[in-house]
Simulated assay, not measured.
Amino acid sequence: MLRTTRLAEGPVEYRLDIRADPVIVVFHGGHLRAGIAVGEDVFAAAGYSVLAPSRPGYGRTPLSTGTTVTGFADVVGDLCAHLGITRVAAVVGISGGGPTAATFAARHAGLVDRLVLISAVGWLPYPDPVTRLGARIGFNGVTGRVTWGLVHALARFAPSMCLRMMMGALSTRPVGEVLAGLDSDARAGLLTLFRRMRSGRGFVNDLRPTPDVTALVDQPTLVIATRTDGGVPFAQSRSLASSIRAAELIESHADSHMVWLGADWPVVGERIVAFLKGTS
């Protein structure tokens, strides 16, 4: 259920799907918020409860609530205390949520058992200067509404064009090959996702530099990525895996940034669950 609570640091929007103890905390990436449960299927299927907060600038979490990655990591620590969560089986960082997840693990080691990073942004320079400038122009608090309005319209009235445009930006492979690998359910799911995505003020905030905490992460860590990711270069995940002491890198053979759409996701998912249970 989607809720908003007010902590000492300010309002926080979150979704808590209660299944069983323990809890998985999921930090989603850019253009997403707590109400969109993308990439969480493996945790739900394994019976874990999921706590997904909207990061600053997304949904109903304002930028003023923990503006920095470090600040928001501590806000979510307070949110866990507020909700009576005393153990987090793993914190998961997907895409742009990677730095917040790693920082949460580093700063709340007594709470967090493990760290999972999926297609995650790390601390190599990212994005390139041209892409960074384009993001600031196209996805700020004003222009983002126009940009996403166009995407939403394409998703409704020209779905094939929308899929080609969006998936072309999320893969290094020819977009025709990427789309050929998607069944009708995956295509429909993507179009629904693209119709719901927003940037708010969060995406430009995500571009701000943040302190590298990889040397401070002591938890067992699983890093999952594909070399054909067109959204976050594979080098980011390779760097995370080499910088975090107890990290293992799993290379997915998915065609795009959204590795959970890959044909090998069931196998990767089994490895994630084994890792969470400490049997891998």
Rank of each mutant, 00 (worst) to 15 (best):
Thr5Gln: 06
Ala8Cys: 01
Glu9His: 05
Val12Met: 08
Val12Tyr: 03
Glu13Gln: 14
Glu13Ala: 04
Tyr14Ile: 06
Asp21Glu: 15
Gly29Pro: 08
Gly30Asn: 08
His31Phe: 14
Gly35Asp: 05
Ile36Lys: 03
Ala37Gly: 06
Asp41His: 07
Asp41Tyr: 03
Val42Trp: 02
Ala44Asp: 09
Ala45Ile: 04
Leu51Ala: 07
Pro56Glu: 08
Gly59Ile: 02
Leu63Ala: 07
Thr68Met: 12
Asp74Val: 01
Asp74Tyr: 03
Asp78Tyr: 01
Cys80Thr: 14
His82Arg: 15
Val91Gln: 02
Val91Thr: 12
Val92Lys: 00
Ser95Pro: 14
Thr100Arg: 08
Ala102His: 04
Thr103Asp: 03
Arg107Ile: 06
Asp113Phe: 02
Ala120Leu: 03
Trp123Ser: 06
Leu124Ile: 08
Pro125Trp: 03
Ala135His: 10
Ala135Cys: 13
Ile137Arg: 10
Ile137Pro: 07
Val142His: 14
Val142Pro: 02
Val142Trp: 11
Arg145Glu: 13
Thr147Gln: 12
Leu150Gln: 15
Leu150Pro: 00
His152Asp: 10
His152Trp: 14
Ala155Trp: 04
Met161Thr: 15
Met165Ile: 12
Leu170Phe: 13
Thr172Pro: 12
Arg173Met: 15
Gly176Ser: 15
Val178Met: 12
Ala180Pro: 13
Leu182Gln: 04
Leu182Phe: 10
Asp185Asn: 10
Ala186Tyr: 11
Leu191Gly: 00
Arg195Phe: 01
Arg195Glu: 05
Arg198Cys: 04
Arg201Trp: 13
Asn205His: 14
Leu207Cys: 15
Val213Phe: 11
Thr214Gly: 04
Leu216Gln: 08
Val217Lys: 00
Asp218Lys: 07
Gln219Ile: 00
Ala225Lys: 03
Gly230Met: 10
Gly231Asp: 13
Gln236Asp: 07
Ser237Thr: 08
Ser242Gln: 13
Ile250Val: 13
Leu261Met: 08
Gly262Glu: 10
Gly262Asp: 01
Ala263Gln: 13
Ala263Pro: 04
Asp264Ala: 02
Asp264Glu: 06
Val268Met: 04
Val273Lys: 01
Leu276Arg: 06
